[in-house]
Design a binder for these strands. Structure first.
Length: 942
RNA sequence: GCGCGAGUGGCGGAAUGGCAGACGCGCCAGACUUAGGAUCUGGUCCUGAAAAGGGUAGGGGUUCAAGUCCCCUCUCGCGCACCA
């Protein structure tokens, strides 16, 4: 800490007002039906809302709640929180009923790993971390309604996480209605007769189901991970290698919602880049499935009566298919592989391992081992080098009857499409590369537009060498071949998604246990009445030596008296955050995850309205959601999915949870690099707060630049806004009284808060009528801050406040009414200082005119609900305006003209300007453009 | 490779197609002061004594007028990446 003198006693002001707000419950939000105390500042602003009826229009402003890590807050966290807090305060001032809650996403790996190391129960770590986070967040003076604080690890919370899971377990996706429906509505097709068959069918259809599938196993973390948690073959958390491994796991049927998850992006106001990321992740592609019969197999076995089915987005290139490739894991590989290599099989077709090249089966075995040994990471890195093995078998191209060789290669993914492709080397980069390596034929079937090479051309062109498709442009060729495939029973149009079902179980301790038991190899839901299912207390939080999840250690918990066993997996960290925004609406409700009344009020019921932050029409769902992009395809996709399930089941009233989303940009270190402990450029907010105070910290976080932008931290920059706050302070506070205050403070530090009262307003602050110029300065400031806050342009809003102060400082006498209005504008951004100065003003005015019927006392104890001023456009009208004069677009002079001058008058004045004359002398004036109130441009030639 | 976004002083950044650089940092000068790493005042895009000229990554275009709109190129950031 440097020894600069404090600009103003923020160290006394900030705790004082935080205490007032806490005791007064200033920022409490009310549900329909709540009883509101008449003295509460909200009730004073909205007297019609007493008794919790006729509540004003709501505005739900949400932060992405944090995972309370042991490291505490860093300066990146409060960036979004400050932005939302400013919006919350601004919306309150504008008369909205603001819901602005905060809570803790507290299940997760770090607490569990700490538990494994120390034996300390994760709950203790979690609680300690939450206490730190809460202290730090509260020190920033955010206007959260702490009555609504939630914690995903609280049994009263996760009881409902488990409840929603049961809802999914007991639902299925009806493709006819395109909705989730209770499992009761499931009808059984013919042939499903016995109870056992029906159970199997039902279990297959549930939204939450168990599947044996290749999953992402992370040995280092000792758990499986969802696709969304794996990036380039490494775990998102920790960056550990991930391998594919078949396991029996719980899955959630998010793929059923793929279409709606894409389509409904059009309903919401999110950054384009983020919508694009979700679209890419869902990865919708239109194409066709085409069946290729196997050659030389007179009676195909079960499973491939139709041969091999491929998915392709380019059925129009079917005539160019010169070979096929199956994923090495494809289940038909063993059935089609021939016992011996066909005559004249080139050596290079027999696989990368010469020692296994004796026959197709041995080469295939070797190649599978080779592919499996590679982690996903290595597979990605080796993407450039194509490898594969010929199976010995041939397929028949259904459109021309050609025999084409069938290969296996790891460039075809088992998990996408059908796990098999038709290779069209002439018009697919990967196939071309493969064909060139193994000397496979390349047949041109799409003529590229003139001037472009057709071999390797992957765009739209014109079909050639394609029989019935010849001469057709690509889109038409697609239509025609699709029709042909369908009439001939060789395939059909289809849509494919990259999105996989959500792998929902984890082999961990510190997560929500599943409300599921196993009996005779079947899973069963526990009744709702038994919720919450709490995890057992363990001595050892490690997985068992046999690789079972840690919960399996608690024998007495796992084994139930009736012989059934509890599910020992837990839910992933994302479970709790999938619905937390709903729990805030009614956090203490023990009968429902939230009451329908609260849900309807806060989430809105109407159709999607045109989004404009201004205007009083409630928008559906969360009105403003601010957080980082790192959750683009995790939390934000999962939460939308859960919300849609709840919507289908009638539990919520909107199809989308978050109507408007804003991503705050990353804050870099002072060196312009990402903040990290290892680089040593991490800025600790505690230190900044101690030196400059919360208001300066808040202001700086917003003054750095646009919220969405990536920007580097600068402690010097904090000093700038801090000085601004000091100037505001000195504009109000008498210098002499401050000197006295400072002196007393050094003598009696502990009585600081009390000493604040000794500070006097400056003598040049007077209760007089403002001059027109002063009114104009204020209203300019109102206009600019209003527009900027509406657009969330906090940096320029702050700059407008600075401009006002720079001007007000020069006034010999400062009208109190003007400065009071300024404080209303300052309040959302620097609430502590604004409150303190406002209280001083109020006290001074009360002294001058003692309480009485005309001046009810005391003045409002808080600025939090002070109405936002409207600017008066009439006051902003200038009588004389400056107009720049250009000659041929170059600035030459500035004219002062009456604001109501006509174009002709301005033109005449411009042409008469002494500074302009030299530039038009001897030249022909071709044209004079007069843009009223903006500019004059004289176009000359010669 | 594909997709998205962004390039403006020494720095963070402002500019509904209409005076480029608001506001802040830094820097320079001055005032007050025992002192200044406090505060206040003035200055601060570049060249030039001035007049004036040049200037928003580079090149081209539209326009009376372009940082802003269009085309091409380059650089940086983010996301996806064998998705058939």
């Amino acid at each position: 800490m440097s020894n600069t003198r404090r600009q103003y006693p923020f160290h006394l002001i900030e705790p004082k007002w935080q205490q007032v707000w806490r005791e007064q419950e200033t920022y409490r939000a009310w549900n329909p039906g709540d009883t509101i105390h008449a003295e509460h500042p909200f009730a004073r602003r909205h007297p019609q809302a007493l008794e919790g009826a006729n509540l004003p229009p709501k505005f739900y402003i949400l932060d992405m709640f944090p995972y309370p890590s042991g490291a505490g807050l860093h300066v990146g966290h409060p960036e979004g929180y400050t932005a939302t807090d400013i919006m919350a305060r601004y919306k309150r001032a504008r008369g909205f009923h603001v819901l602005h809650p905060m809570g803790w996403d507290a299940f997760g790996l770090p607490a569990e790993q700490y538990a494994i190391k120390t034996g300390q129960h994760p709950r203790q770590t979690t609680e300690a971390n939450i206490a730190t986070f809460k202290r730090q967040i509260q020190a920033l003076g955010f206007s959260y309604d702490w009555h609504r604080e939630i914690n995903t690890t609280d049994p009263r919370y996760y009881r409902w996480t488990q409840w929603i899971f049961l809802k999914m377990y007991n639902s299925w996706f009806n493709p006819v209605t395109n909705k989730a429906e209770p499992i009761k509505t499931l009808t059984y097709p013919a042939g499903i007769e016995t109870e056992e068959e029906k159970r199997a069918y039902r279990d297959e259809k549930r939204l939450a189901y168990v599947a044996e599938a290749p999953v992402n196993w992370c040995p280092e973390l000792g758990t499986v991970l969802a696709n969304e948690e794996v990036s380039e073959g490494k775990s998102e958390i920790g960056g550990f290698p991930v391998v594919r491994r078949p396991m029996r796991q719980w899955m959630l049927r998010i793929t059923a919602f793929a279409e709606r998850l894409i389509a409904d992006l059009d309903l919401i106001d999110w950054p384009l880049a983020l919508k694009e990321m979700q679209r890419n992740w869902i990865g919708r592609s239109e194409g066709a499935e085409v069946a290729f019969p196997i050659a030389d197999i007179p009676s195909p076995g079960v499973g491939f009566e139709r041969g091999i089915v491929v998915f392709t987005t380019r059925p129009d290139t079917l005539f160019g298919a010169t070979y096929m490739v199956l994923a090495p894991e494809h289940k038909l590989v063993d059935q089609i592989a021939t016992a011996e290599w066909p005559a004249q099989t080139p050596e290079s077709w027999k696989g990368p391992d010469p020692s296994a090249a004796g026959s197709p089966p041995s080469a295939i075995r070797a190649y599978r081992a080779y592919a499996a040994a590679k982690s996903d990471l290595e597979r990605t890195e080796m993407a450039k080098k194509k490898t594969g093995v010929f199976t010995g078998a041939y397929a028949i191209n259904p459109v021309n009857g050609e025999r084409i060789p069938i290969w296996i290669a790891d460039y075809v993914l088992a998990t996408y499409g059908t796990g098999a492709i038709m290779a069209v080397p002439a018009h697919d980069t990967r196939d071309l590369e493969f064909a060139r390596k193994f000397d496979l034929p390349v047949r041109l079937v799409v003529q590229a537009p003139a001037g472009q090479e057709s071999i390797g051309f992957v765009g739209d062109g014109t079909n050639v060498n394609s029989g019935l498709l010849d001469g057709l442009p690509t889109p038409e060729a697609k239509k025609k071949i699709n029709a042909w495939l369908e009439t001939n029973g060789r395939g059909c149009r289809t849509i494919n998604y990259k999105l996989r079902d959500w792998l929902f179980s984890r082999q961990r301790y510190w997560g929500e246990p599943f409300p599921i038991i196993w009996r005779n190899g079947h899973h069963e839901a526990l009744p709702e009445g038994e919720l919450p299912i709490e995890p057992p207390v363990l001595d050892d939080y490690k997985p068992t030596t046999s690789g079972e999840p840690p919960l399996a250690r608690a024998e007495s918990w796992v084994n139930l008296p009736d012989g059934s066993r509890r599910e020992t997996n837990t839910m992933p960290q994302w479970a709790g955050s999938c619905w937390y925004y709903l729990r805030y609406l009614d956090p203490d409700n023990d009968r429902a995850f939230c009451s329908p009344e609260a849900e309807r009020y806060w989430m809105g019921t109407g159709a999607i309205s045109d989004r404009k932050l201004e205007g009083s029409k409630p928008t559906p769902g969360v009105d403003l959601y601010v957080g980082g992009t790192e959750h683009a395809v995790l939390h934000l996709l999962y939460a939308r999915f859960w919300h849609k399930v709840l919507f289908d089941l009638g539990c919520v009233s909107t199809p989308e949870p978050f109507h408007r989303l804003v991503n705050q940009g990353l804050i870099l270190g002072e060196d312009g690099q990402k903040m990290s402990k290892s680089v040593g450029n991490v800025v600790n907010p505690d230190l900044i707060l101690a030196e400059y105070g919360a208001d300066a910290f808040r202001l700086y976080e917003m003054f750095m630049g646009p919220l969405e932008m990536v920007k580097p931290w600068s402690t010097k920059g904090v000093e700038g806004v801090y000085r601004f706050l000091g100037r505001v302070w000195r504009l109000f506070i008498d210098e002499k009284s401050e000197q006295d205050f400072e002196q007393s403070l050094t003598l009696e530090e502990p009585r600081g808060a009390e000493l604040l009262n000794r500070l006097e307003l400056r003598a040049d602050l007077q209760d007089i009528s403002p001059s027109p110029a002063q009114l104009k300065a204020l209203h300019r400031c109102i206009k600019k801050t209003t527009e900027d806050l509406d657009g969330m342009r906090f940096n320029t809003a702050i700059s407008a406040l600075m401009v006002f102060i720079n001007e007000a400082i020069t006034w010999p006498v400062k009208p109190m009414s003007i400065l009071q209005q300024f404080l209303v504008l300052l309040q959302p951004l620097a609430p502590h200082l604004a409150e303190e100065l406002n209280a001083k003003l109020a006290a001074a005015r009360a002294r001058k005119s003692p309480p009485g019927p005309r001046h009810p006392a005391p003045a409002e104890p808080t600025l939090a609900y002070a109405p936002w001023p409207d600017y008066d456009p009439a006051l902003l009208v200038e009588e004389v305006i400056e107009i720049p004069v250009q000659v041929n677009g170059r600035f030459r002079d500035r004219l002062e003209v009456p604001a109501d001058s006509t174009a002709e008058q301005i033109e005449a004045a411009a042409l008469a300007s002494e500074k302009v004359k030299p530039f038009i002398a001897g030249k022909t004036v071709k044209k004079v453009i007069v843009v009223p109130r903006k500019v004059v441009n004289i176009a000359v030639i010669g």
